[in-house]
Design a binder for these strands. Structure first.
Length: 901
DNA sequence: AAGAATGAAAC
DNA sequence: GTTTCATTCTT
């Protein structure tokens, strides 16, 4: 595999890699390299650099934070600037996935040129495939939106100039939508601020920025909870509402999951986590002073949680909390305990879970002091509910919000970024969190926590999920959450070895891994069935595999990987964990009790899903098992991933800078991973196919209009017969596209008798149904074509009786046909086998259900995802094949159409 | 920084 | 309808 792939890409990559540095964003991290980094060496180096750099970055970006490692909660400031990036649309996804391929083939080509080609490809793409991308995009978007309820694509054009006053007001309102974005959520908050997302007020959560990943999780969970529970009350939270509606979008699920209790994987992990927590606490973000504890830059989730809880308490004075997750309560408990100590411990924390609410009140009072420590500044969450809070929060936060709120029309992102409101953030104190209390306090806290855990928690948690792979998960989770920074070296190596599998890998967590993974994936992606087939001889072999295709596609890599990983990782993980436990104790130093406490906490957290990492791991484990099934694919967004990602993202640093490609910052890993997985799962068409098409088209173009940009695509051998069928389709589409682009030119007129011809040819292949294609084309408008003259295009498209279109197409087709004829057999077979049957979407659709493999694009991803999720739980495989009612509905039209035909 | 493409959202 | 911005990366 690699050989081929490597051969191809390497050069390009190498080039790229050299260039990569460009991005500023990257600074902070290896991700930058992401693309280039295919090679392990590079990666490693990068990793190292990264490690080193991180601090620097931290310093740069957030000088104050100091705790680079620490989770930078603070970064809100930065975050302010960074708004979450919009989710990519289908086309972008497609581009992202295929650009490398294009480049490989046409190294010379500029990106622009590549983009054009990609556009062409896109135009040609089968509706089904497009749909996949579209679905994915949608899913992604949905998840994203859930994560960031108030997110707006456009920064609120400032037009109105919200003006500062607004900003202030906004700041209050704002409550922060959930930050948890894959990357940049924080920014979102800002946006919202400006926008005023009124609805969210209720949530008034702590700033995500401040909060660690956990916070994100919590938020997510809370949202979920709130949505469910509060739904009645909160008409406000659009997000929540949405979540409900979708019910199952992956993201939503994620939220749910987070909320739902999960069993901690192994005790071992717990220990680790706890230890890490202790470290964190002790070391505290800002306070390095703690001698005992090793300063782990990374904050423990727990710590974050505590922060969060504290923040929440502030913001949300309301009683809602009670309802909220046990985790939250726990956090509160912790805080309370601390507060008590500080104040003098009038009451004991042990209050018990049941009493939590009451405690909350007390806590809230106590908290204020803590708040100072906390980074209240941005919490602007402005506890919607708490009347007072608004005022208080406003003052500190105001500044930030103002910046954010305005959305400044900054025309360009960069500007915005630059603008960063960092100024305001000065927030010196944010980091302060670490509490003086330090260990002793911790102990007390722990105690309380334990009590809580035992008492309330146990009862509450009832449902704990099964830990399926919890073990596996656990290890990773631990790794991830706690040691975000960790070294990547290992992971990289592993990754290299495993290549694909790495994603979930055990250690991996970190950023490095992700990037690598991503890269790996991307690289591999080509290798993936389709691409690979074409490139390499393997094709034959694959085809069979491909049969199931659609998903398999995606899965192909994953499954193996996952499995391997799972198997491999699990054992190791456990071992590692054990080791960690052993080791950690040292770190932790004395205090077993704490540990134990922590352990309890950890459990609780886990149960709650707070520990995203664990969850993610678990999920992954599931996935691994599931892998084969379609569900993976579509199921797509695992909650975990999001949660995780969120958590990861939580880190401001990354978020901000992460812009670079994956950006997905290291931390996010999981989320990204999943994203990537899905992304990878997306079918990657071999360039050859496209090329051929393109070539054919080009030729035409050339002949007709010299205007083709991408004349030369090498037709590497028609060898890539597989996709040829696609090819045809593509050709058709392609025609359209060209028409569009050059359309004006004039091709229009030519009749395309050929079309018919082509169809016959296609017809030859079982899968393909020529007639359908045109329809497809028609059905799926090539695209918005907003910019170009689509009208002309449309006009151009002369439909034949069949509905086929433009003349150009005919010609192309004819060409294609000729080519195809030779190759077709394979392609068809393969395709058919694969179940993809690009040719006929409909047929495919119809078939799809039957053939588990081919997922009909038609099914809404959401539906699929849901189904998958549902099924996954029970069984991992093929659930997808069975359409849900919703799916059926979706299909209905198609079916009908088919029937008509 | 501009630009190529498409699409989704916001205006 | 138009504008913005998402991604990538060369020029």
């Amino acid at each position: 595999m690699k050989g081929g792939g490597g051969g191809k890409e390497p050069p390009v990559e190498g080039e790229i890699s050299g260039k990569r540095p460009k991005r500023k964003c990257l600074q902070w991290h290896p991700l930058l390299a992401k693309k280039a980094p295919d090679f392990s060496e590079e990666e490693e180096e990068e990793d190292e650099e990264e490690l080193e750099k991180e601090p620097v970055l931290c310093t740069e970006s957030v000088a104050q934070e100091g705790v680079c490692g620490g989770i930078e909660d603070d970064n809100e400031e930065y975050s302010s600037e960074q708004r979450a990036r919009r989710p990519m649309n289908a086309f972008l996804l497609f581009c992202k996935r295929h650009r490398s391929l294009v480049r490989q083939e046409h190294p010379r080509l500029d990106n622009r040129g590549a983009t054009k080609i990609l556009a062409d490809w896109w135009a040609v793409l089968d509706p089904k495939e497009k749909q996949k991308y579209t679905d994915m995009a949608k899913e992604y978007k949905d998840a994203f939106m859930k994560a960031n309820p108030g997110y707006k694509w456009c920064p609120a054009t400032n037009k109105p100039v919200k003006s500062p006053s607004h900003s202030v007001s906004n700041s209050r309102k704002k409550v922060w939508s959930l930050p948890s974005n894959p990357n940049k959520d924080p920014s979102v908050a800002k946006k919202q601020a400006k926008t005023d997302s009124t609805p969210q007020l209720n949530f008034a959560m702590a700033d995500p920025n401040k909060m660690g990943g956990l916070s994100m999780l919590l938020l997510a969970g809370e949202h979920a909870l709130t949505a469910r529970e509060i739904s009645s009350s909160s008409s406000q939270t659009g997000c929540t509402d949405v979540a409900k509606h979708t019910g199952k979008s992956a993201l939503f699920q994620l939220a749910e999951i987070s909320s739902s209790p999960v069993q901690p994987a192994g005790g071992s992990k717990n220990a680790e986590d706890t230890s890490s927590l202790t470290h964190v606490e002790a070391s505290g973000p800002s306070q390095p002073s703690s001698p005992d504890l090793p300063k782990s830059c990374v904050k423990s989730p727990l710590f974050q949680l505590a922060e969060i809880s504290s923040s929440r308490s502030q913001s949300a004075s309301e009683g809602r909390q009670c309802g909220q997750s046990a985790l939250f309560q726990l956090a509160e408990m912790c805080l309370a305990s601390e507060a008590e100590k500080i104040e003098a411990r009038s009451s004991q924390p042990s209050g018990g879970s049941s009493s939590l609410c009451a405690q909350h009140s007390s806590i809230s009072t106590a908290i204020p002091d803590h708040e100072e420590q906390r980074d209240a500044p941005e919490l602007p969450l402005t506890t919607s509910s708490s009347s007072t809070s608004g005022s208080t929060s406003s003052s500190p936060t105001d500044a930030i919000p103002s910046d954010i709120s305005p959305c400044k029309t900054q025309k360009k992102k960069k500007k915005k970024k630059e603008n960063k409101e960092s100024d305001e953030n000065p927030p010196s104190p944010k980091k302060a969190k670490k509490r003086q209390s330090s260990e002793s306090d911790l102990d007390s806290v722990m105690f309380t926590i334990e009590a809580v855990a035992k008492g309330t928690w146990g009862s509450e948690e009832t449902p704990k999920k099964k830990a399926r792979p919890s073990e596996c998960e656990s290890s990773p989770s631990t790794d991830q959450s706690p040691s975000v920074k960790k070294k990547k070296s290992k992971p990289k190596k592993q990754l290299k070895l495993k290549d694909d599998a790495t994603e979930e890998e055990e250690e991996g967590d970190e950023e490095a891994n992700k990037p690598q993974d991503v890269e790996m994936k991307t690289e591999e992606a080509p290798l993936t069935p389709k691409a690979e087939c074409e490139n390499e001889p393997d094709l034959e072999v694959e085809p069979p595999i491909g049969v199931e295709d659609m998903e398999p596609h995606c899965s192909p890599l994953q499954p193996t990987e996952l499995e391997e990983k799972d198997t491999d990782t699990k054992p190791p993980q456990t071992t590692q964990e054990d080791k960690d436990l052993e080791v950690k104790p040292e770190n932790c130093g004395s205090r077993k009790s704490e540990r134990s406490c922590k352990g309890a906490l950890y459990k609780t957290l886990v149960s709650e899903g707070m520990l995203t990492s664990l969850r993610a791991n678990v999920d992954r484990g599931k996935r691994g098992s599931m892998r084969g099934s379609v569900s993976d694919h579509e199921g797509g967004w695992n909650d975990e991933s999001w949660g995780f990602s969120q958590a990861a993202t939580s880190n401001p640093k990354k978020l901000k800078k992460s812009k670079s490609k994956e950006e997905t910052a290291p931390g996010l890993g999981k989320l990204e991973e999943e994203f990537e997985k899905k992304f990878n799962s997306l079918p990657q068409y071999s360039p050859l196919t496209f090329d051929k098409k393109s070539v054919a088209v080009t030729k035409k173009k050339k002949s007709s209009t010299s205007s083709l940009p991408e004349p030369p695509k090498p037709c590497k051998g028609s060898s890539s017969s597989q996709k040829k069928t696609l090819f045809h389709k593509i050709v058709n589409k392609y025609k359209h596209r060209k028409e569009k682009s050059s359309a004006a030119d004039k091709d229009i007129a030519t009749p395309d008798p050929m079309v018919t011809e082509s169809s016959p040819v296609k017809s030859g292949s079982p899968c393909v149904s020529p007639s359908l294609e045109p329809q497809k084309v028609l059905d799926t408008p090539v695209g918005s074509q907003k910019r170009k003259a689509r009208k002309s295009k449309i006009t151009h498209l002369v439909r034949t009786a069949d509905g086929r279109v433009s003349p150009a197409e005919a010609e192309d087709k004819s060409k294609d046909q000729t080519k195809n004829q030779d190759e077709k057999p394979f392609t068809q077979e393969t395709l058919c086998n694969s179940g993809v049957c690009y040719n006929d979407p409909r047929s495919a659709e119809v078939d799809a259900p039957d053939t588990s493999g081919g997922l009909p694009a038609f099914f809404s991803l959401a539906a699929l995802a849901e189904v998958a999720a549902m099924e996954n739980v029970h069984r991992a495989q093929r659930a997808v094949s069975i359409p849900t009612e919703g799916q059926v509905k979706d299909m209905a039209p198609v079916l009908i159409s088919c029937a008509d035909q």
